[in-house]
């Protein structure tokens, strides 16, 4: 491994301090895709006259064209209508799932952390117990117990992502709570809630928003996997994942019925994760960038900077 190559070629320590004003093309495209999907979901009834549920047994596996701009599937349902209505349920279920994950993971996590050692210890011991189970499997088991349908599905998605959110919350909370300004606020008689909302929340909000942007596409993917396994969304509110799953056995006869939702799903998750990555880069490291501008001249670390932390360890 040629270490020297790294030192010679990588761009350096101090990143350019000027904030980039122009938006990269990938980000603009991603935003356009997400907005398009949202718009499609909202305006579905006006964009197509066909129902996503009506079966036409005379029109099975039709190629795109004519009355059906994107063809029909193995039950003769209009793929275009299903795509539009599917946008609605895909986004709806995933957003609700993410919201539940945050309500449980971040909400309960923050409250427990704010109110002392024991509530947090108990909560995280509980979370630790389910941690060994992969999210998809946990969601699967939860749906087994809760029954299928949009409600249980959303709840199962939320619960299966909650541990991840809780860990991120705890890590960022602890990083902030150890800061001197939190101690200083305590020394001004600042209560736990004051410290939480004035100092901790604003400083971890970036990390949490970023996390949400990362979890949303993963929710969409997990939902589609569950649909594929036959325990996902209900037949009357089809998601894209369900469409792919339903058509996967007829891939030979009606490739369009599977390709359309597949491409839509991949584009949406790609767009969302691109936005998530941009958020992470621009929101999360605010402090680090700030610290760096002050410190980046310090090639020689002043002697004592590292020491007194040890003093309290």
């Amino acid at each position: 491994m040629a270490i020297q190559a790294v030192s010679a070629q990588e761009p350096g320590l101090g990143r350019a301090p000027s904030p980039r004003r122009h938006w990269p093309a990938g980000l603009i495209l991603s935003c356009a895709i997400v907005l398009g999907v949202v718009a499609a979901g909202l305006t579905a009834p006006w964009l197509t006259a066909n129902s996503p549920l009506d079966q036409d047994l005379l029109q099975l596996n039709k190629a795109p064209g004519g009355d059906f701009p994107l063809g029909t599937d193995h039950l003769g349902r209009d793929v275009f209508a299903r795509l539009l209505y599917g946008a609605r349920s895909t986004l709806g279920i995933s957003l609700a799932g993410t919201a539940i994950a945050f309500a449980i993971g971040a909400g309960a996590g923050l409250l427990a952390l704010t109110f002392g050692r024991w509530p947090a210890a108990v909560l995280f011991a509980l979370i630790d117990l389910v941690r060994a189970l992969p999210g998809t499997l946990l969601a699967l088991l939860l749906i087994v117990g809760l029954g299928s349908g949009p409600g249980p599905l959303t709840l199962a998605l939320g619960i299966s992502f909650a541990p991840l959110v809780a860990y991120v919350t705890r890590a960022t909370y602890r990083r902030e709570a150890a800061r001197d300004y939190v101690q200083a606020a305590a020394s001004f008689c600042g209560g736990r809630l004051h410290i939480l909302q004035r100092h901790i929340l604003p400083n971890i909000a970036g990390a949490l928003v970023t996390q949400a942007a990362i979890i949303l596409p993963r929710c969409i993917v997990t939902e589609s996997v569950l649909s594929f396994l036959g325990v996902g969304s209900s037949p009357d509110a089809p998601t894209w994942g369900r469409m792919i799953a339903d058509s996967s056995r007829f891939v030979e006869r009606a490739p369009h019925a599977i390709l359309v939702p597949l491409v839509a799903l991949v584009l949406l998750t790609l767009a969302l994760s691109t936005i998530g990555n941009h958020l992470r880069r621009s929101l999360d490291p605010v402090r680090d960038a700030a610290d760096r501008t002050a410190e980046d001249a310090d090639d020689d670390q002043p002697a004592e900077r590292a020491r007194p932390q040890l003093a309290t360890a």
Partner: peptide, 18 residues
Amino acid sequence: NTWSIAVPTFCAGVAAIL
């Protein structure tokens, strides 16, 4: 990295079959 985030394994599988 993006592939693994955005493309569910079964979609990749279906695409491969196709």
